[in-house]
């Protein structure tokens, strides 16, 4: 990425409704953190610094989903001061776990959680950043993978296309050498429909993938759902399986609604 006059590119990190985990991932890059700070100017990162640099920013990382009117306005501003905008994590990319509100009456949700719901201003839905502004890249995961985050930053610095494959978890699972938990154990696993990036963690720990990276780019639900049923999941289980951290991703949303109608 060329920047004006050879200066260091400016990085900003923004937060909306989220658990903070994805921006924390940047601080979890213990080996790279000081190096990143030498190569990029971390201009705005509230979680890590009380100083804010001047706009515009060369790269904005956005964590979290849009759940309030103020946030919907704030993200417009962020887009306008960012040359590149990369969303980090399931909240920013698919609305996050808080998008479970999309299936319920938010007034009711609010009443369950807050005694005086009128104090709480919130939108009826939790929506991804891309529903509000154009996004240059969406980094998946709940949380994102540290290696992928470093890849995005280094690729950005080199002007290279980040190597962030869109295929399913199965690809990484096989590369890792883990015997397929569906085939070898009859364990329900969302790996075949889930976006790679985590390194196929769950199967390596003997559990089925639970879809925290959202849908992959090539999905065949009509062939896949019967596997979940065969391996012991009932309709409610299937609905729950797709209604977690990427529940508002269009593919997961559609299949969970379809299953819920059964």
């Amino acid at each position: 990425m060329s920047t004006d006059g050879g200066r260091r590119p400016k990085l900003a990190v923004w937060k909306f409704a989220s658990c903070d985990g994805c921006q924390l991932t940047l601080l979890d890059c213990e080996d790279e953190l000081l190096g990143i700070a030498e190569e990029v100017e971390i201009s705005y990162f509230l979680e890590a610094s009380s100083a804010a640099g001047p706009v515009p920013y060369d790269l904005s990382l956005v964590d979290g989903s849009i759940t309030t009117r103020q946030d919907a306005e704030r993200v417009q501003h962020i887009r306008s001061v960012s040359r590149r905008l990369v969303t980090i994590g399931a909240c920013a990319t698919a609305g996050g776990v808080q998008a479970l509100r999309n299936y319920a009456d938010v007034a009711e949700f609010r009443a369950v959680v807050y005694a005086k719901p009128e104090y709480i201003a919130t939108l009826a839905t939790s929506t991804p950043i891309s529903a509000h502004v154009p996004v240059d890249l969406e980094l998946r995961g709940c949380p994102i993978d540290r290696g992928q985050l470093v890849e995005v930053i280094t690729a950005f610095l080199a002007g290279r296309k980040p190597d962030v494959p869109d295929h399913s978890v199965c690809f990484q699972c096989k590369q890792r050498g883990t015997p397929c938990v569906i085939v070898a154990h009859g364990t329900p696993c969302l790996g075949p429909v889930t976006h790679a990036g985590c390194g196929a963690l769950c199967p390596a720990y003997g559990r089925g993938c639970y879809g925290c990276f959202g849908p992959s780019n090539s999905i065949n639900f009509p062939a896949f759902i019967p596997l979940l049923r065969r391996d012991g999941m009932d309709t409610l289980d299937v609905v729950r399986a797709f209604r977690t951290f990427n529940t508002a991703a269009p593919e997961f949303d559609a299949v969970s609604r379809e299953e819920a109608r059964r």
Partner: peptide, 11 residues
């Protein structure tokens, strides 16, 4: 911090 309603959707 925007509310996220965990207790509601845990039900």
């Amino acid at each position: 911090e925007p509310p996220r309603f965990f207790e509601a959707f845990l039900r």
